[in-house]
Amino acid sequence: MELAAQKLITCIFPKGIALDVAKKLKENYDLMSVDIKSARGIGKVTPLGYRGIGSQSEKEILTAIVPEELSNEIFDYIYHEADVNRPHGGLMYIYPLISATRYIVPDLPEEE
């Protein structure tokens, strides 16, 4: 079991964004440990607040365990892919993990 220096990126997105980002992370960075959870956000300003629906909105939480050496690059990649830099675009943060296993897909021989 390989224990490597890794970091956890957590992203809180509006509903409907996380799955596309997760697919791109898998395609471009071969990340296997990406999870998506449903959540609700409570804040002082929400997208539908003007309709009197209240201060809550549906969110998706994407978490990805990434190698430490690629953490900044992947963080910036997610930031641009998910278009976080817009009103109600979401929030993301990163923090180090003391230890985490890195899952590597085994190399399977081609079937003849």
Binding site: R86, G89, G90, Y93, Y95
Partner: peptide
């Protein structure tokens, strides 16, 4: 409580 290395969001 946990420390965060970096946070990113939209700031007007």
């Amino acid at each position: 409580v946990t420390h965060l290395d970096k946070v990113a969001t939209y700031i007007p």
